[in-house]
């Protein structure tokens, strides 16, 4: 039996305001407005080259590393303007962690992979506790607790990706960005990560870029569709509840993309 939802003010972990991105003279994303609710999974989908990863990397300022990159508009992290003059990308990345397409553990022990962030961050609590807690949160503890001194590279692909998630969690972020985190994994390892995301969203806010539309359907609460126009400039076509996007989208381009008729 369902009960009527109580009206609760939705808090947003991230707000995009007129975000426009350029590589050199080329505009690649235009005017994205979108608010990412706390403790939800928000998926960004769209065809290849639609600017999904570029948009995601704007959030933790990974694009700053690309000399020709420029961004207009604002991204708010709570009340904090991520692009305010003087804001420190390194500090931002502690708050807004990232997991990449291919698992990229350091060539260090499992323990040291997870302890890496807290150590350089000057963490002065019990390192063992934070390693265990992070590995538990990443649903990896039971599989590795007896082999913490072994290299992270000895793990399977799916385990390595969960190790990278544990590594991201160890610096206690509030937002986790995932850039196609399952594209290098088999279906079972993929389901394990998807299941983990449902646990993680209770404590963190998750934004995932995926080229796998079905995965967006399975894991996300909200879905954003980015599509390039005829000048290859990406627009936010639609942003809504995932169940609505997949059953009754408003924009006909969403309908066509979701049903596999374009893209």
């Amino acid at each position: 039996m369902t009960t009527a939802a109580e009206p609760v003010a939705v808090r947003h972990a991230l707000r995009f305001e007129g975000v426009t991105a350029y590589y050199g003279a080329n505009k690649v994303i235009t005017n994205v407005d979108m608010a990412v609710p706390e403790h939800e999974v928000t998926a960004i989908i769209g065809p290849s080259g639609a600017g999904k990863s570029t948009l995601l990397r704007c959030v933790n300022r990974m694009n700053d590393l690309i000399p020709a990159f420029r961004m207009d508009g604002k991204i708010w992290f709570g009340d904090y303007d991520l692009y305010a003059p003087g804001s420190d990308p390194t500090q931002i990345r502690y708050q807004i962690g990232m997991v990449f397409q291919r698992p990229n553990p350091f060539s260090k022990s499992i323990y040291d992979n997870v302890a890496f962030g807290p150590r350089i961050n000057g963490f002065n609590g019990r390192l063992d506790d934070i390693v265990e807690e992070s590995l538990r949160a990443a649903a990896l503890w039971e599989e590795v607790k007896d082999r913490l001194k072994e290299s992270g590279l000895t793990l399977s692909g799916g385990q390595q990706q969960r190790l990278c998630i544990a590594r991201a969690l160890a610096v206690q972020p509030s937002v986790i960005l995932m850039d196609e985190p399952c594209s290098a994994l088999d279906p079972i390892a993929t389901l394990a990560i998807e299941e983990l995301m449902q646990e993680l969203k209770k404590r963190y806010t998750i934004v995932i870029v995926t080229h796998n539309m079905q995965q967006a359907g399975r894991v996300s609460d909200k879905t954003a569709l980015l599509m390039p126009d005829e000048h290859r400039v990406a627009h936010l076509v639609e942003f809504d509840e995932t169940s609505r996007m997949f059953t009754n989208p408003t924009d006909e381009r969403t309908e066509a993309y979701i049903t596999g008729r374009i893209g």
Binding site: R218, T242, S243, T247
Partner: peptide, 15 residues
């Protein structure tokens, strides 16, 4: 009505 839209939502999103 609610039951049906929940089922349609799950079929559309969960394969």
């Amino acid at each position: 009505d609610e039951l049906e839209s929940k089922c349609v939502g799950l079929i559309a999103t969960q394969q």
